[in-house]
């Protein structure tokens, strides 16, 4: 039975897989039709006919992850690392009968490469579904508090 704790544990584990760069295990958390979305507008509703920083399916996420390890991926020489600091997730929906689970998690994210270190703040929203005994990500939405500011490279996943 999926409980609120199951959701919270899932979100902590997801962040930990990113921080420890276990990319394949992280991808395995997604539903086959899962999406990773970084909107470019405040409370954006439409990922397709409004601009976004990212709106990616599994194939595009795989491209990113394979690229990170590429022999000729010069922007990963040296490699990036990341760190997620999460607030306790706020459970918005936990409805095992309907199979709908939603949570919102406030975070501070750090991405570092070489001597540079960038820090971002925002909210991660998880739309999860139950597949067998497990939760899978239908949508991970990343709302940066300063989505409209000009950033340098963001090469990993928030």
């Amino acid at each position: 039975m999926i409980s609120e704790k199951t959701i919270t544990d899932f979100i902590y584990r997801e962040a930990d897989l990113l921080d420890t760069m276990q990319w394949q295990a992280w991808l395995d958390l997604f539903h086959p039709e899962g999406r990773y979305w970084m909107p470019l507008e405040w409370q954006q509703q439409d990922p397709v006919l409004q601009p976004s920083l990212m709106y990616e399916d599994l194939m595009l996420m795989k491209v990113r992850i394979e690229r990170l390890a590429g022999e000729r991926t010069f922007s990963q020489k040296p490699k990036s690392r990341c760190h997620h600091l999460l607030q306790a997730p706020q459970i918005l929906v936990c409805d095992p009968a309907a199979g709908i689970f939603r949570a919102k998690t406030s975070y501070i994210y750090t991405e570092t490469r070489g001597d540079t270190l960038e820090r971002f703040s925002g909210w991660a929203s998880h739309d999860l579904v139950q597949v067998g005994d497990e939760l899978k990500i239908k949508l991970k939405r990343i709302d940066l508090v300063n989505f409209d500011a000009p950033f340098g490279n963001i090469q990993l996943f928030m």
């Binding site: 601009p51 920083l53 491209v63 922007s75 340098g152 490279n153 963001i154």
Partner: peptide, 14 residues
């Protein structure tokens, strides 16, 4: 635009 011209674009990173 987001594939090529964004701070999250892998082409942009290159």
């Amino acid at each position: 635009n987001r594939f090529i011209n964004a701070p999250t674009s892998i082409v942009g990173h290159d």
